[in-house]
Design a binder for these strands. Structure first.
Length: 203
DNA sequence: CGACCGATCGTCT
DNA sequence: GACGATCGGTCGA
């Protein structure tokens, strides 16, 4: 089946956990200077806005960086982590409700050579698009794209009819959010069991 | 393998 | 002035 761009309505739904689960198996596409790089989404994390201590928008926190999280769903939220890594998120829900989904891993589909060039890797191993920092690097996504519409031709998410068994989807606590107290235990991470591009030791 | 550590900088206090 | 929603290299078992 041909790739079909997801519409804004997909992202504007209320249940960020549901949207996150449905993002598994979809395709993240980036186009830079005419070159397409794309990969199937195999790992995501949901961040549930003002009530979620792990979210940048916890407690209604509103800064220049996080402002884009309060936009209507269907735009990118990209921020710099540890001064090095650009982490790509999808903003969901309606305006003023700062829900977001972090894309943590892709299975590369298109533009392998370009991904290798961007990351400086020699071989297309599993680490090429494993982990949120690597995803952005391989697809050429940076903080410049924060606020970018996912309806654009340069950055969007598509479906192609790919299906996976219900039992292949797993959930777990999110990675690296120990500071969030009890919220760190919420099972807001979703991934495809057994996919080698998924981060973590043993899926 | 696992544990540890340095890199590196925009953002917020 | 401190701190990350990380990564990759090194070191030791």
């Amino acid at each position: 089946m041909k790739r079909k761009k997801l519409k804004p309505e997909f992202f504007r739904r209320e249940n960020v956990l549901q949207v996150a689960r449905e993002l598994l198996g979809k395709i993240l596409v980036s186009k830079r200077e005419g070159v397409i790089t794309a990969g199937r989404i195999v790992e995501v994390e949901a961040y549930k806005g003002v009530t979620d201590k792990a979210s940048h928008a916890y407690g209604g926190r509103r800064t220049r960086r996080t402002e884009v999280m309060y936009a209507r769903g269907g735009v990118a939220y990209v921020y710099l982590c540890y001064g090095i890594h650009h982490l790509f998120n999808v903003v969901t829900n309606e305006k003023e409700i700062p829900h977001a989904i972090l894309v943590r891993a892709l299975e590369p589909l298109e533009g392998l050579e370009t991904m290798l060039a961007r990351t400086g890797k020699k071989k297309a191993g599993y680490s090429l698009t494993r982990g949120p920092g690597n995803v952005s690097k391989a697809l050429g996504i940076s903080t410049q794209h924060s606020g970018y519409s996912l309806q654009s031709a340069e950055l969007y998410i598509a479906e192609d009819g790919y299906r996976f068994g219900k039992n292949r989807m797993r959930s777990s606590p999110r990675i690296g959010v120990d500071y969030a107290g009890g919220d760190a235990k919420r099972p807001y991470r979703f991934y495809l069991q057994g996919n080698p591009f998924v981060s973590g030791k043993n899926n």
